[in-house]
Design a protein around this nucleic acid. Structure first.
Length: 602
DNA sequence: GAGTTTGAAACT
DNA sequence: CAGTTTCAAACTC
């Protein structure tokens, strides 16, 4: 291993050249197809096949290679030196221990980062992903290992900034994602100067990945940029938020799980500090600061019993205790969105009371396939359901102070009988007000009515006075866990929007041109940045975060031309979605394209 | 804890 | 795309 690595690494340096040329490795490399062959096209196709939109022309991101290098270098840390992308790639290929596969080598030797440019189908990618995982770990027990080992092990992303970087990279270069998919191993370490631990981390990360369907939670700086799950990837959200117990949080899927959990799960309207949240989430990891929300949550739950009761308990008590989603599916095999775990992008875990569950690492393939299928039907199926905007959202005819919530349910609810006053209502459940996206009847959402005319406590009852005015007057039941003021700075992260964008991008939303994609990425990046940043500075002043979030774009998008409340631009991802029936929404969405290009927020 | 209600998801 | 069915959570008793 050392030899090849060294040689390869040194390729390009005059001194080493002679040695290298005599090296078997070098010979081997020479025997390969031209290294410089660019497979950008095929790569694009690959993405296409994956339903990814064609990646922006930002392909030659060296980091991709470097990222992969990380895990392959542990054997020779000293060799970790700035090398060209190609070199790194080759190096890795060699270290891969895998027989020289034409395809792979082709791709690796191309200028394009090691995206598998063989045009393999997503299925293939998934397989490859699995293969890679297996190959690298060489032990099928990682999963078990991971499960057994505490999350401490798992979330060892040593470098926040690295994670963040990864996300940026990913967002700016879909290829990276693919790479990640094909190379599930996380390599935040790659550039983190921790070669000696890279292996372990990789392993751990893999474990994590297996633990949850999709841990990409950009906001979670703790999270390793495990450019992982082939297809999806978007459920960043999910995960963390998975805590259904946090009534309000449940479906928010914010990037910054920590923050959001704190925000919404909290009984108190006060934003919980990151620490607070952390404590609730994972007491085991207290202080560790490296746990990832999802997993930690899951782990926490493992220690719990009677999911349902616990959940209710939690809800009722309003405890900030967050936990993973726990389902109770009986017929869906936890492979449908009915299943909260599945919907949240996490595997079912012990506390789940599901029957015949397939949503487990063991059935990873099935899960992924199913997800893929669902996403093909609705690209945003796994996108955050709640879009938490920044304060920029302007409530029509409302004083900002009256704004029920800065967040809105992506698709809106369709309540008929609950008046949006019960958790049947997704808006209410999420702790957000109904919006024009909603098709609810007799909306009395305590967090804000569809017409944006009321807010719990200050409900004027003027509108809708006709119907059940008495009811609404009586008392507007608040959700189990008292909703926090949704205007909390951190609660307004444009998080989900990113998700959606990502989603769109990944699934090649119709008509998404390169330019568009690029813009999406911009947004994404921006959002990611925001989130990551937020994560990173979780303890910094909220105002800072707010500033961070309130980008021009956000502001612009926050308001529709007619000043009506508008969903965030990412909604545009659903612009053509068949499942969007609401005409009003379409109208709003149509205005999106007019938004000025996004500028890199960082 | 069992049964009912509800609305999202899935299906046709 | 609308109507219907299925499903599981939320809720009630």
């Amino acid at each position: 291993m050392d030899t090849p690595q060294r040689n390869v690494t040194q390729i390009g340096t005059p001194v080493a050249k002679l040695k290298v040329e005599n090296s078997p490795v070098f010979n081997y490399i020479n025997s390969l197809s031209p290294i410089t062959t660019s497979k950008t096209i095929s790569t694009a196709q690959t993405f296409s096949s994956l339903n990814f939109t064609s990646p922006p022309p930002v392909f030659n991101t060296p980091h991709v290679a470097s990222r992969f290098r990380s895990h392959s270098n542990p054997s020779d840390p000293s060799k970790v030196e700035p090398a060209s992308t190609e070199e790194e790639v080759v190096e890795e290929a060699i270290l891969e221990k895998e027989p020289p596969q034409t395809l792979k080598n082709d791709s690796t030797t191309s200028n394009t980062p090691r995206v598998i440019s063989d045009g393999s189908s997503e299925t293939d990618l998934q397989k490859m992903c699995d293969d890679n995982v297996k190959r690298k770990s060489d032990t099928p027990d990682w999963e078990t290992l991971i499960s057994d080992s505490s999350d401490m092990l798992i979330y060892g992303s040593p470098n926040d900034s690295e994670a963040f970087r990864c996300f940026l990279q990913r967002s700016s270069d879909s290829k990276t994602r693919l790479c990640g998919a094909t190379k599930p191993v996380v390599e935040p370490v790659s550039t983190s100067n921790e070669p000696e631990s890279s292996d372990a981390l990789s392993i751990l990360h893999r474990g994590v990945r297996r633990r949850c369907l999709d841990f990409e939670m950009p906001g979670n700086n703790k999270q390793t940029p495990r450019c992982v799950v082939p297809s999806i990837g978007l459920h960043l959200n999910a995960i963390a938020m998975s805590s259904k117990d946090n009534n309000n949080v449940s479906k928010e899927y914010s990037f910054s799980g920590n923050i959001k959990v704190g925000l919404q799960s909290s009984i108190t309207p006060v934003l919980l500090s990151d620490n607070t949240v952390r404590e609730n989430e994972t007491k085991e990891d207290a202080g560790d600061g490296v746990e990832e929300a999802p997993l930690s949550l899951a782990l926490v739950e493992v220690n719990q019993s009677s999911p349902k009761k616990k959940r209710r308990k939690s809800e009722q008590t309003g405890e900030g205790e967050s936990s993973c989603k726990r389902c109770n599916c009986k017929k869906s095999k936890c492979l449908k969105l009915y299943c909260e775990c599945f919907a949240a992008g996490v595997y079912c875990i012990e506390p789940c009371s599901c029957i015949d569950c397939f949503n487990k690492p063991i059935h990873e393939d099935t899960v992924l396939a199913t997800r893929k299928q669902i996403e093909s039907r609705n690209p945003l199926a796994f996108a955050p359901k709640v879009i938490r905007n920044s304060d920029s959202i302007i409530e029509v005819g409302e004083d900002a102070s009256k704004t029920p919530a800065s967040a809105r349910h992506k698709r809106g609810c369709n309540c008929k009988k609950s008046n949006c006053l019960k958790k049947y209502c997704e808006c209410y459940q999420s702790g957000v007000g109904c919006s024009i996206n909603c098709r609810c009847e007799g909306c009395k959402n305590a967090f804000g009515r569809k017409d944006g005319s009321s807010f719990a406590g200050m409900d004027t009852e003027q509108d809708q006075e006709n119907e059940t005015s008495d009811r609404s007057r009586t008392t507007i039941p608040l959700p189990p866990s008292t909703p926090m003021p949704l205007r909390q700075p951190l609660a307004q992260l444009p998080i989900s929007s990113n998700n959606m964008l990502l989603s769109q991008h990944l699934h090649g939303a119709s008509g998404s041109s390169s330019l568009y994609s690029s813009q999406s990425f911009r947004k994404q990046d921006m959002g990611l940045f925001s989130h990551s940043r937020i994560e990173t500075i979780a303890e910094e002043r909220a105002e800072d975060i707010e500033n961070l979030i309130q980008s021009p774009v956000t502001n612009i998008n926050a308001v529709s031309p007619n000043s009506k409340r508008v969903s965030l631009p990412h909604m545009d991802s659903a612009e053509t979605s068949p499942w969007r029936r609401n005409g009003g929404r379409k109208l709003l969405l149509s205005s999106i394209p007019t938004f000025p290009s996004l500028t890199p927020h960082h």
